[in-house]
């Protein structure tokens, strides 16, 4: 099922939690909402789930208006951040719960529960109560419970944030596998960029209740549209635009000049470009060796005027032999690797 969100706004008291948020999610797609704490991810997910009402805007599921449909009639599967299994019910009874609400016949419920628990590899734990399961197992049950009633949409609010790193990685793969197997349209909230980039078909980056950029993970990484996204996703040199650093102008608004540019550290090469343009000279300020990767920060002296010295970060493969603090080196930046992040 496809979901269309149009200009959703929501305030709590004086605080704008969401401001004119629009998004369309295609059938079978997995979207991640990514952003710092308090940017409105949970609020948006709760509005989609029908647990919160927006102040303005509208939502459509396959073209059908959702605004007057209460949570229990939306048939969306929801998994929450903290374990929200019913503690007085066994794993199997938790999974069966939504089916009983929909008055499925007993035999069909039994089969479906078995199938769902097998899907999340918990067939042997059906009789256990939630407190007898580990955190990861509890979230698997929560996933099975959400998926059992064949929901039209799966909504996940930081389902893995309470788990330790290893279990987390396992479950990331698990969720993705199940999602692709069932081809279910899914929205997942996270504030972990790696999680978002590795799992999602598309990522929506948010800040202070607004959408900063929406696109496939590689696009978000390669082509950030503003300095917030540039800084938030991976590492990026965010610098004032100067005439020495060449760039290919793209999507320039009529008559505007670039103000801020961004360059990924791996695109800053310590070498000569073989031509004048794009070659600088920098003094090594700091070297950090991380095994097969070396991070070098270099100070590029201003060419006078009002401009300040620039500190540029470069990442090299390998041990970076022969790099020493204080050495003066040539730097090369290819114009096509320079992103304009802000315009005058």
């Amino acid at each position: 099922m496809s979901l269309e969100i149009r200009k959703i706004s929501k305030s709590f008291g004086g605080v704008k939690a969401l401001d004119d948020v629009s998004l369309s999610v295609e059938t079978g797609e997995m979207i991640c909402f990514l952003g710092p704490s308090g940017c409105g991810k949970t609020t948006l997910l709760r509005i989609i789930a029908g647990l919160e009402y927006p102040d303005g805007g509208s939502m459509y599921l396959d073209g059908r208006d959702l605004s007057s449909l209460p949570a229990r009639k939306r048939n969306f599967g929801v998994v929450f951040q903290s374990y929200s299994l019913f503690p007085n019910l066994s794993a199997a009874a938790n999974v069966a719960y939504g089916l009983e609400c929909r008055r499925w016949p007993g035999e069909k419920i039994r089969k479906r529960v078995e199938e769902m628990l097998a899907l999340v590899h918990l067939g042997d734990h059906a009789r256990k109560l939630p407190h007898q399961l580990s955190g990861g197992q509890q979230q698997r049950v929560a996933l099975a419970r959400a998926l059992a009633p064949e929901p039209s949409l799966l909504l996940l609010d930081e389902p893995l944030s309470a788990l330790d790193a290893q279990v987390r990685e396992e479950l990331q793969e698990e969720i993705r596998r199940v999602q692709q197997h069932l081809k279910i349209t899914t929205i997942m909230v996270t504030h972990d960029q790696e999680e978002a980039l590795s799992m999602a078909d598309r990522v929506m980056v948010m800040k202070d209740g607004t959408v900063m950029q929406t696109g496939p993970p590689m696009d978000i990484y390669k082509r950030p549209e503003n300095s917030f996204v540039a800084r938030f996703i991976g590492k990026m040199n965010v610098l004032p635009a100067q005439k020495e650093i060449p760039f290919q102008s793209h999507v320039a608004a009529e008559g505007s000049r670039p103000r801020i540019i961004g360059i990924r550290p791996e695109d800053v090469q310590i070498a000569c470009c073989g031509r004048e343009e794009g070659t600088f000279s920098g003094v090594v300020d700091q070297v950090v060796r991380l095994g097969n990767l070396t991070r070098v920060s270099l100070r590029v002296e201003s060419t006078g005027g009002r401009e300040k010295d620039l500190l540029i970060l470069s990442e090299l493969q390998g041990m970076g032999e022969g790099l020493e603090v204080g050495a003066s080196l040539p730097l090369c930046i290819q114009p096509e690797n320079v992103r304009v992040l802000e315009w005058h």
Binding site: A49, G50, L51, P70, A71, R72, K73, R74, N75, F76, G77, V78, F80, S82, S84, L85, F86, N88, Y97, G98, C101, R102, R145, A146, P149
Partner: peptide
Amino acid sequence: ARGQMEAARSLGMTHGQAMRHI
């Protein structure tokens, strides 16, 4: 926990049913 009522409602229960069963 507040999440219990929300989980029950998302699974298709009315407020009253969730109150009684959960």
